[in-house]
Design a protein around this nucleic acid. Sequence first.
DNA 1: GTCTATAGGAAGATAGAC
DNA 2: GTCTATCTTCCTATAGAC
Lengths: 190, 190
Amino acid sequence: MEITEDIIIKVALRLFSKKGYAATSIRDIASETNLTSSALYYYVESKKHLLLKIIEKGLNKLIMDAKNGLIHLRDPKDQLKELIRIHVINHGQEQLAALVIDTEYRSLDGEDRQKIRDMRREYEEIWLEVLRQGKNEGVFTYEDVRLATYALMEMCTGVAHWYVEGGRFTIEEIANQYKELGYRMVASLK
Amino acid sequence: MEITEDIIIKVALRLFSKKGYAATSIRDIASETNLTSSALYYYVESKKHLLLKIIEKGLNKLIMDAKNGLIHLRDPKDQLKELIRIHVINHGQEQLAALVIDTEYRSLDGEDRQKIRDMRREYEEIWLEVLRQGKNEGVFTYEDVRLATYALMEMCTGVAHWYVEGGRFTIEEIANQYKELGYRMVASLK
DNA sequence: GTCTATAGGAAGATAGAC
DNA sequence: GTCTATCTTCCTATAGAC
């Protein structure tokens, strides 16, 4: 990957997350990268392709981090807390990407849309499996696994909506509190 | 309010939530209401004003429902469960409005933006007060009230992202499960 | 209230020079 | 690799007839 392309992606990410994909023009992106809009097309196939790459990159990182985080853990309680930690930290550190992934999915169509849908499902499946296993072992209690999973995931996803770097808590401190809140949500009482 | 205006708002709401505000044109809205774009301007001041009215209406309903729901409740546990119930049912029944409120806030500017920000803060304050009171009375446990509140609210808000009418659970059933999950998240162990 | 016509500009993307 | 110039289409919004 070339250096100019990285800058373009970074600028596009910032503008897409701030103004939205549709409201951001190729000329906006070009202007902030000190290129003309035609020079930009030397690096980028289309505006839609740029969005796709941003979303793919972000989701890939999240999935990889989650899978790596679980490798050495066997206890569902530890696994859940690790998923919460990774999800929260991702949505803080990669806040702009997280916002774009969540809100601009609708701007894709056809096989692009399907591909992102599949990646989201893959990530969701990681959580579902941990929650199922925890119930089987009797450490988790909930009525429906999908509902509990969505509740947990959306709670963590929300961090991207309010987190500000340099605020009262670091993202690690937030992750720690969320680990406790999330675990209590589904924990079986001893 | 006139009947044509209601239809316009309904159509705009559907299109804004599906394609996004910026990607929806006045012509799109006119076309689906069987009006020309100029006829539409007889009812609507501007596209931005239409968005503002949609967001205001949706937030107003949510705030009113929350306030009314709490009137006769004194126990923080009951109050929290009622807030969860109202928020979840609102985000299921008014799903499209909820999505527009959450994602198109950025499309407003100036005093419009400030007004919506204030309304969101007013709603948030209702939750914060219940959570604070619960901790004072010893029935809730958490490290930071704002963090716990955001976690609870975002968990419930997320329902708008995945709920489908006619799915495995009615919105009331979902609300019931969320009441339990949310309460356990902050409940003090006896 | 609803129409046709149109102003005035901005959008995505490309051609071709350097 | 980057530019100027431009094609074509779409946009919000208005003027003025009926």
